[in-house]
Design a protein around this nucleic acid. Structure first.
Lengths: 182, 182
DNA sequence: CCAGACATGTAAATTGTTACATGATTGT
DNA sequence: ACAATCATGTAACAATTTACATGTCTGG
């Protein structure tokens, strides 16, 4: 479980309130570790209980807004965790199960729906990544740190392209399996 | 949640007992939807309660071994589900969080451990897939159904290669970030 | 007959999702 | 003052993992 460490990382980059974290998760770290605001609040409570972060009412902010900061103990914990290792996360993909199910049922069961749906999603995601690459990583020299960021983005790009290729090819093969309007 | 439908698919391919399912999951369907024997037994109970499978003590087998078969209602349910669609499964990868944490901590925190660990895993997985490809899909004409199987395997191959490339490149960039023996 | 393997489970803990509830502030 | 919005939560549920427990046959 990496949520606590994802939160520590994000707070280390920029101390802020729970809601701000939730918003940042939607487009940066949460990209690799999605989390809802409910999860985040609960986890922030645990982090504070563990003495890894401190919180204080935020001056000049509306409502009960609190600001969370990483404490030295939290930084140590994050350092400890970074040096650990895990197996690659297991895949769990309903589309693959559907393809197999369609084969077991004999064709005409309708996986094409899911294939086309996913194709649209992956194309949209790819377009997003390409826009980000264009905006942040093009036309200039990059520092080593920036090159690492770029590598991560490129990995996302490669994944989306692979998925698109897969869906397109699968659709072609399925069409070949059921020539008439089954 | 696709476990019930993964089980229906597997039972449709070949009726068998819970333990056999668990074993088959380890190297075929469970590749896309991992599940332990505990999960499988519980889910088989639900499938039977729903009238989607039937079970009978298996003749000539040891112990309390039971054989599960898909009933017509189960086949209909599977057909219904195959035509549905889902979003691509969200990514949740601790390695990416670690890379980001290392950047936030300033280098020398030790992500290399995880990178090297994952590199080894992905190389092993790639070798496995390559052996399967060699054994099952080389040197002959493939039917459309076999081509689809092959496509799925190729997708796995592409993913492993991409992951290997990513880890290797990340290790190089990290070495550039911390030139001395930090 | 009993050790070991095989087959089937039960229980608790963890993690994540979904739906709902409350408090505080701003703009009108 | 009151609607809209922002910030923080609570509760119930669903899915998965981990650890443990039990029953039944086979081989020595």
């Amino acid at each position: 479980m990496s949520l606590p460490h994802a939160l520590l990382t994000s707070l280390l980059e920029q101390p802020c309130a729970g809601m701000d974290l939730a918003r940042r998760f939607e487009r940066s770290i949460g990209f690799f570790w999605p989390a809802t605001h409910q999860q985040i609040y609960k986890e922030l409570g645990k982090l504070e209980a563990a003495g890894w972060v401190s919180s204080a009412a935020e001056e000049g902010a509306r409502g009960r807004k609190r600001r969370y900061d990483v404490l030295p103990a939290g930084k140590l914990e994050l350092q400890r965790w970074v040096a650990e290792s895990d197996d690659p996360p297991p895949l769990r993909d309903a589309l693959m199960v559907r393809l197999r199910a369609e084969a077991a049922l004999g064709s005409g069961a309708g996986v094409e729906n899911d294939l086309r749906h996913r194709l649209a999603r992956h194309r949209a995601q790819l377009a997003l990544y390409e826009a980000i690459e264009q905006r942040d990583f093009s036309g200039r020299e990059l520092s080593a740190a920036e090159q690492l960021q770029h590598l991560i983005l490129q990995s996302g790009l490669a994944t989306e392209r692979e998925q698109i290729h897969f869906c397109e090819k699968a659709l072609v093969l399925l069409a070949a399996l059921q020539p008439a309007g089954v």
